[in-house]
Design a protein around this nucleic acid. Structure first.
Lengths: 126, 126
DNA sequence: GGACTGTCTTGACGTCTGTCGAATCAAACG
DNA sequence: CGTTTGATTCGACAGACGTCAAGACAGTCC
């Protein structure tokens, strides 16, 4: 209900245009924090950070789950669970083609997060 | 003990030189993920993300806890706990001057995290 | 020194998270 | 259609996390 003006959805983060200035420039509003924090949270696990890296750096822009699972000493369900977390955070997209499922990074939101952390050298005073 | 070659400490992240290429370029090793994931994790809470933003965007480069606490509808100990988390993640530094405690952002590690998330436009194929 | 203010630590409680084994779903192949 | 292979979902469990009330600590002012 009510104020939908401040509402920001994960879909918006797909865009290439930055949603917000760096946190070092302006204090971010609670609504923005509520939307972006889950994305950082998803990257806050070593396994997921590696998964994200493997997906984002895949030569063909996508990678099969069958290539991800054996890279860790974890069970299939656990990897699947982490992938679901990345998916729900809007960081990756999945796509079943025949027997195999492929994962692809969504560069838009990654750019958003990177922009948010950008520190202007001039801003660090002197 | 043993292999200290691959060990990466939080102190290293203070430097201005990037510790690693973007995750979209190369798969990051497990050791790097283990060190950087906690920093993302620390930003993975809405309250801490706002705290980090308030600290990083403070006009004087630092901000008093007494200015942070009333900005949230949370108890003092809870804010203190979140600040401790940010401190242990290497994202901020604290400094007591008289009665008040001031927090300051550490731009080095923020640059590291931003660099890690950088997505080269040319890398997104076409 | 004693009282007061501001901040941090401790202890406790409910919730969320990471992990696995077992079961289930989806597609391909006999 | 039954079997096999790959991926996800379900159920369960230990451990971590977010929160607060109460207490402890640091510094100031009288």
């Amino acid at each position: 209900m009510s104020k939908q003006a401040a509402v920001l959805t994960l879909t918006d983060l797909n865009a290439d245009t930055p949603c917000c200035p760096p946190i070092a420039q302006h204090r971010i509003p609670a609504e923005t924090a509520a939307v972006l924090a889950p994305a950082f949270k998803a990257l806050g696990d070593p396994v997921r950070l590696q998964l994200m890296s493997m997906i984002a750096s895949a030569p063909d822009g996508e990678i099969c789950v069958c290539d991800l699972t054996p890279a860790f000493e974890l069970s299939g369900p656990t990897i699947s669970h982490h992938l679901k977390t990345l998916r729900e955070a809007g960081l990756v997209d999945s796509d079943r083609r025949g027997t195999w499922v492929y994962y692809r990074a969504r560069p838009g939101i990654m750019r958003q997060l990177a922009a948010l952390l950008t520190v202007d050298v001039a801003a660090t005073v002197g």
